[in-house]
Design a protein around this nucleic acid. Structure first.
Lengths: 148, 148
DNA sequence: CAAGATTGACGCCTCAATCTTA
DNA sequence: TAAGATTGAGGCGTCAATCTTG
């Protein structure tokens, strides 16, 4: 007879691997949904913050809001500016600072991107009954809370 | 009185956002654990496949195993070769093909990386009781199965 | 000096174009 | 022609070094 195997270790890492794969799958689907609109998740996030702001926002502030490093924003805004979705405006009060202002074209693209995003999101959520969505949110929330 | 708000849409996207964040958190922790050993998740995965193979493996085969594109492997193997963890060897049978062979140094680093990986994995899994690990695996599995 | 932003270099991923061999 | 791999360009992220301004 075959010995019972100690599956804990292997199945344990499988949970985390699946979690990572699922996260990537969601990201992938979002990127695909945004692509026809000439947007990416990174660009949409930046536009979302800028669209919700009252005035042009300093790049340092934007980097905090997007949980990334300053130099990342420099390049992201470079790309957004090249597509005329955002404009760099000087800050009169602090001449070290550069602010990003969303353009009308930026707002339009942002709205279109949002619709595509909501579409693909509800499509994915249809894969899970409401109760499992709540369970997933709870478990993943605990994981995030525990993660340093 | 304030109207009851339709929270379904916002809370729905929050589940997916949390899922993506959790996946990234796991990846982040793995990268941090591997960094002291001069490894990344991408490098470790490649070494894992090569260490488990009987003979040097064609780069095209490796790219299939790692679910990525050929040119990605070209560069990944470039970096692994620069660190002497892998060697490119010509294929006598098909001179178009290049095979990657793991070196002894590669095997040593792979073993060290594996230990660090298991360590950080069990550390993260301690955040969830066994029953929730199983629930998470089931739900995430359904999501992965449904994702095209 | 410290805080803004930028630059350059790199990791890791993609795609399109190219080169060599089957 | 098609199948191997590579190259070049670009997106998105990091870090270290630099430049300007406070």
């Amino acid at each position: 007879m075959k010995q019972i195997e100690p599956l804990e270790q292997v199945s344990a890492s499988a949970v985390l691997d699946s979690l990572v794969m699922a996260g990537r799958m969601v990201e992938q689907r979002v990127e695909e949904a945004l692509q026809p609109h000439g947007l990416s998740a990174a660009k949409l996030s930046a536009l979302e913050v800028l669209a919700g702001a009252e005035e042009p926002m300093a790049l340092g502030v934007l980097s905090h809001r997007l949980h990334c490093v300053r130099s990342n924003i420099t390049q992201l805004v470079d790309r957004l500016e090249a597509e005329k979705l955002v404009r760099r405006v000087p800050d009169a009060e602090d001449r070290r600072s550069v602010r990003a202002a969303i353009t009308q074209e930026g707002r339009n693209r942002y709205e279109a991107g949002c619709r595509a995003l909501r579409e693909v999101q509800s499509q994915m959520l249809r894969l899970l009954p409401r109760s499992e969505q709540e369970t997933l949110a709870r478990i993943v929330g605990r994981l995030l809370a525990g993660g340093k």
